[in-house]
Write a protein that binds this DNA or RNA. Structure first.
Length: 544
DNA sequence: GTAGGGTTAG
């Protein structure tokens, strides 16, 4: 090891600006025998884990290379920090356990990151929902959080401002807002951050009175306080009120824009979202990952492949990492816009895949008729159970849609059964929808009928409507009549329902019934739905 | 010899 080689490498290290450079530098220092120098490893891991050009799974593989690396407190904190804000917060908890088990020294940073990981893990379990094991998982995470809180007090970090904020945030994510408030009251000199956390905590449990009280009492407001207010209105689908706050607030940052864009997407105002996106760039606010995720969502829903492609290109140019939410948004956009080969490319390049990635790809393949590929991917997913990925209700929609596409009745029955027996997932209306559609289109009207009758839902009109549609193609007047009567029990019958039944009668030559239905329609004044379509023109969406 | 943190948006 020569000193000049060391300095040359250090100099290159400070100018590091892409993963390819990082790998080149790695090769150089390996040759010169400097590879065991912890300074280099630290920088490599830091860059890979946290840079926008990084690669988290690569960072993790570097982390695992030796016990010297794994027992370095700064490196552990770096991995903890990266996982805590990734789509894999559970990995952060593993790192924390590893630190405890091997006596790696923890500091206030460690607690800050691991508390954040608990908050995120809790949120992820909540959002994945609907599985019966979810409650146990939530309990495990909240116990872990409380345990770490005890540790914080024991070691004496409870007066650290950032740790305090992370604790407030964690308890408010757990839904324990009163616990958070109790801690807040005990803080001697509260920071603006802690006020903002409490306000959004009350907002999230819809206690606007308490939120507004805090908002009024706080010593001064900042852009985050205003953003919290924007997101309240967005959550209430009141985009106009959000817009008013947005235009009056003294200062706007990327989050303010992101909230407005996401708000438009959530009320399906995709053109509005794209308009805000271009305004944001015009006033010189740099889009963040979150901006792109929302905009890609708008592209996916409207088929604006051009804009989606442009975003992908710009990410490639600045070598931005494609993983997590962003990777999934791109994947989803390509699937929805029908470019399956680019979707595959994104999917295969993502080293650490979330459940949403698998689901988006399986559904993408299924709806575009690549059914064998969808089944194959599902099997791969089941075989990768060691990676803690397990199919959920959305995954089964994918395989059922694939069965439906190819008319594979037996296979669909098998998946339906498999979902309940192996994964304890109770089928929802969409799974029944797939089954009823498939069965009835294959002439198994009686079986479809029995299925709807035993379905545990109140709102099964969409199922009856599917059956009614199939009764027309199968010319089954008896079941058509039953379906129509069932439909009439729900809200107002649509024009489509009348047309279907009337066509069934017409085809059977029952003109008297056709006449009766027409009169009934006029008498009840059944609303007609205007048809519309969307086209992508000069990067904006037109309705026609 | 030396890095790094909490809130709002998905």
């Amino acid at each position: 090891m020569t000193e000049s080689a060391f300095w040359r490498a250090t100099c290159m290290l400070n100018k590091l600006s892409s993963m390819s450079q990082l790998k080149q530098l790695q090769a150089i220092i390996t040759k010169s025998g400097l590879h065991s120098h912890i300074t280099f490893t630290t920088k490599f891991i830091f860059f890979s884990a946290l840079s926008t050009m990084g690669n988290l799974s690569y960072a993790y593989s570097l982390f695992q290379q030796s016990s010297i690396v794994m027992n370095n407190p700064f490196i552990c904190n770096t991995m903890l920090r990266a996982f805590s804000k990734s789509s894999f917060p559970f990995q952060a908890l593993y790192i924390y356990n590893h630190m405890k088990n091997t006596n790696v020294v923890s500091d206030s940073f460690t607690y800050n990151f691991v508390l954040k990981a608990c908050s995120r893990a809790y949120k992820f379990i909540q959002e994945s929902g609907s599985c019966s094991c979810g409650d146990d998982e939530l309990r495990v995470v909240s116990n872990k959080g409380a345990e770490i809180h005890c540790e914080v007090i024991k070691i004496g970090f409870e007066n650290d401002h950032c740790v305090q904020s992370s604790l407030l945030y964690m308890y408010s994510q757990f839904g324990l807002v009163s616990v958070a408030h109790h801690l807040f009251d005990q803080i001697k000199d509260t920071s603006l951050v802690s006020w903002n956390i409490m306000i959004s905590a009350y907002d999230r449990i819809d206690d606007y009175e308490s939120a507004d009280y805090l908002l009024e009492s706080m010593p001064c407001k900042n852009v985050v306080s205003w953003n919290t207010l924007i997101s309240r209105y967005i959550r209430l689908s009141n985009v106009e009120a959000a817009r008013r706050v947005f235009s009056c607030m003294p200062e706007r940052n990327a989050v303010s824009w992101n909230s407005m864009i996401a708000g438009c997407v959530s009320v399906k105002d995709y053109a509005g979202a794209l308009e805000l996106f271009s305004q944001m760039q015009n006033v010189g606010v740099k889009p963040t990952e979150v901006t792109l995720i929302s905009v890609l969502g708008a592209c996916a829903e409207t088929g604006a492949l051009d804009i989606g492609n442009k975003i992908h290109e710009s990410l490639k140019v600045c070598e931005h990492k494609i993983e997590g939410y962003l990777g999934n948004a791109l994947l989803n956009m390509y699937c929805k816009c029908g470019n399956l080969s680019l979707a595959w490319e994104i999917f295969n390049r993502m080293r650490m895949k979330t459940l949403s990635c698998w689901n988006a790809m399986i559904i993408g393949l299924a709806v575009h008729g690549y059914c064998e590929e969808a089944f194959k991917l599902f099997s791969e997913m089941e075989e990768s159970l060691g990676s803690s990925i397990r199919p959920n209700q959305v995954t089964f929609i994918g395989v059922l849609v694939a069965c439906s596409h190819k008319g594979l009745v037996d296979k669909a029955r098998w998946y339906f059964d498999h979902m309940v027996k192996r994964y304890q997932i109770s089928p929802d209306i969409k799974h029944y929808g797939c089954m009823v559609d498939l069965l009835s289109r294959h002439g198994l009207l009686e079986e479809a009928y029995r299925m709807i009758k035993t379905a545990p839902f109140q709102n099964s009109e969409v199922l009856w409507r599917t059956l009614l549609g199939a009764c027309r193609t199968q010319a089954n007047m008896e079941l058509a009549k039953i379906s129509f009567q069932q439909l009439a029990k729900f809200e107002q019958l649509t024009i489509g329902d009348y047309v279907l039944l009337s066509n069934i009668y017409a085809e059977a030559g029952r003109w008297d019934e056709v006449e009766r239905l027409r009169n009934e329609m006029d008498y009840l004044n059944v609303p007609k739905e205007a048809g519309y379509s969307q086209i992508d023109m000069n990067e904006s969406i037109k309705l026609s």
